[in-house]
């Protein structure tokens, strides 16, 4: 019984990482109307930035805000320099560009940091741990960080003037411009915020998966499935689906004999297919705005 509980907590913490990256996908899609295939690789890049800072001797809780700031600025630069050119395009150009960005960032990270696997320090106190409860504590830490991040996002969007203007742009960019909102800046800021949210997912998952350029590939598949459940629009649905996927994956890997560790990735793919079938047609993907 305690074993099952631990499995669920671990599933939730893994799910919190999926939820975080899914939230980043939803943010970008809400503001730019683009499905960002490079979201996972940008998160990986952020994890390397954090690793570099930790390697230079900074404590984790100092490296985190710096990494987030770098991610926001980096995300805005990517949006301004590359994404802006294809933003109006509804169909293939944005997909091609973000897939290209994904491949490019992956290769560039390999060049800079090599494809060697590195260990990434776990920010949550091991001192509190005893026996099998250690993973329980770090799992709760991951859940806590993602929960705080979501709370901050909620407060920002619901209770600040800037958040209101961003929601206006998401609802109707033309009407927002007619109200004097500088939509270009909001689109950049949305991309930057998504990069920071993805960075948190990357930094939290790095200690579990080890740091390497291909680290986020699998996570992106799960985050994608979670975002599809929310139609790439609904942040709450995406987060709930991310958490559910984490739990389902962990439990299926442990308790369903034929799934095992290798077939776990079937879970998100099944979710994507089933959701899309229930939605009838491509409404769950970029076709919907």
């Amino acid at each position: 019984m305690a074993g099952l509980l631990l499995q669920i907590v671990q599933g939730l913490s893994l799910g919190a990482v999926y939820a975080g990256l899914a939230l980043a996908l939803v943010l970008v899609h809400r503001f730019n109307g683009i499905v960002n295939f490079a979201q996972g690789e940008l998160a990986m890049l952020s994890a390397y930035v954090a690793w570099q800072l930790l390697d230079a001797g900074l404590p984790f809780w100092a490296a985190l805000p710096i990494t987030l700031a770098v991610s926001v600025v980096g995300g805005m630069l990517v949006e301004r320099s590359i994404i802006r050119r294809v933003e109006g395009d509804r169909e293939l150009a944005p997909v091609a560009v973000t897939v290209g960005l994904m491949v490019f960032v992956n290769a560039a990270a390999g060049l800079v940091w090599s494809f060697a696997v590195r260990s990434f320090p776990n920010p949550f106190p091991a001192a509190l741990s005893f026996g099998s409860a250690q993973s329980g504590f770090s799992a709760l830490g991951v859940l806590g960080v993602v929960a705080v991040m979501m709370l901050l996002l909620h407060v920002f969007f619901r209770h600040t003037g800037a958040g209101l203007l961003m929601r206006a742009v998401a609802a109707d960019p033309v009407a927002a411009r007619l109200s004097g909102v500088r939509v270009g800046r909001v689109l950049g800021l949305g991309w930057g915020m998504a990069s920071a949210v993805g960075a948190i997912a990357g930094i939290l998952v790095a200690p579990l998966l080890f740091l390497e350029p291909n680290m986020m590939g699998g996570v992106l598949v799960y985050a994608f499935a979670a975002a599809v459940v929310g139609g790439f629009r609904d942040p709450v649905a995406a987060v709930v689906a991310g958490l559910g996927l984490g739990v389902a994956e962990t439990l299926a890997g442990t308790y369903v004999a034929f799934v095992g560790a290798d077939l776990k990735v079937i879970v998100p793919l099944l979710v994507i297919v089933v959701v899309l079938m229930l939605r009838r047609g491509p409404a769950g993907t970029a076709g919907q705005r």
Binding site: G161, L164, L165, R167, A168, A171, D172, A175, A176, S179, G180, V181
Partner: peptide, 16 residues
């Protein structure tokens, strides 16, 4: 209009 936003929010955006 910003359809998903409330009436008050629509007016506040006009005034920002």
């Amino acid at each position: 209009l910003f359809a998903p936003l409330t009436v008050e929010e629509n007016l506040r955006i006009g005034a920002h």
